[in-house]
Design a protein around this nucleic acid. Structure first.
Length: 263
DNA sequence: AACTATCTCAACCGCCGATAG
DNA sequence: TCTATCGGCGGTTGAGATAGT
């Protein structure tokens, strides 16, 4: 699937890939911090919730699942979760209940299929040695992680041709651009920052997990990791409280959080 | 054994905004 | 201001693997 693209850089490097393709491969496949292995039920649940808040903003969602790439989550959503939701009678786009007939129909089909599919499921589980072996994942305490580094275009700019270190760190926080620019795509420039948002009068501050890289955090907002984590933990609790029979209040809190991300 | 159907996921594509020159 | 380039995003494609017929 590797296409030779006419990129001057690829000639210099002796590669068949253009720079963009190399970057993509690094981001989605080669990066050492990518978590290999199947997606846990907790991650499942988190993805679904975040998707209900953020929609198809995969990079934003991935930003809250360390070690997972937007591509991986996007694929996982398209191949597993959307189908699962549909089978459960939920519209994967709107996260609302499908009309009764459709839900019933799905159920009927599901039952019909399950007769034949037991073998197939085993196939899927054993297909990829790396990913499908841990289906019996032991229950873990759900954990939401701090968003990855955020870039400030206006506050701080770094040279574009950053070193390896900065480029890798920056790119892991790709999602943050949406946070800062209101959901738009793309954007270059460098620098890290903190995101803040208000939720029920409480100001949440989220910054780089690796504070050493973050010139902003070291000087602003006190830079207290534990405070940040505590604050984020409050958000986490709100998130986790909204289970499938979530109460309205928590849902509103989460929605306001999501809105704040998109501003 | 050969063919078909289905699934997975890395890679590609096209677009957009930021930045450099 | 204009143009070229880069970085990043979401949507889509298609090769490879596997099971079923």
């Amino acid at each position: 699937m590797v296409k030779a693209i006419g990129d001057p850089c690829q000639k210099k490097a002796g590669l068949l890939r253009c720079g963009k393709s190399c970057r993509l491969r690094w981001m989605n496949y080669l990066r050492p911090d990518i978590k290999r292995g199947n997606i846990t039920p907790d991650e499942d649940d988190l993805i679904i919730r975040l998707h209900s808040l953020l929609g198809n903003r995969w990079s934003l969602i991935a930003g809250r699942l360390p070690g997972r790439t937007d591509n991986e989550i996007k694929n996982y959503w398209n191949t597993h979760l959307s189908k699962r939701l549909r089978n459960e009678g939920t519209d994967p786009n709107t996260h609302k209940k499908l009309s009764e007939p459709i839900a019933k129909e799905n159920k009927r089909r599901k039952n019909q299929r399950s007769k034949n599919n037991n073998n197939k499921k085993e196939m899927v589980m054993t297909k990829d040695k790396n990913k499908k072996t841990a289906q019996h994942v032991e229950p873990q305490k759900p954990k939401v992680h701090l968003p990855k580094p955020t870039r400030f275009t206006s506050l701080l700019s770094l040279p574009r041709n950053d070193s390896f270190t900065s480029s890798t760190t920056v790119t892991t926080g790709s999602s943050s651009q949406d946070l800062n620019r209101g959901g738009g795509r793309g954007g270059g420039g460098g620098g890290f920052g903190v995101n803040t948002w208000c939720n029920n009068g409480l100001v949440f501050c989220v910054g780089d997990e690796d504070q050493d890289h973050d010139p902003i955090n070291s000087s602003a907002d006190g830079g207290d990791d534990h405070t940040l984590e505590n604050l984020y933990e409050e958000y986490l609790q709100a998130l986790l409280k909204t289970d499938h029979h979530h109460d309205h209040q928590n849902q509103l809190e989460l929605e306001s959080f999501a809105e704040s991300l998109l501003i």
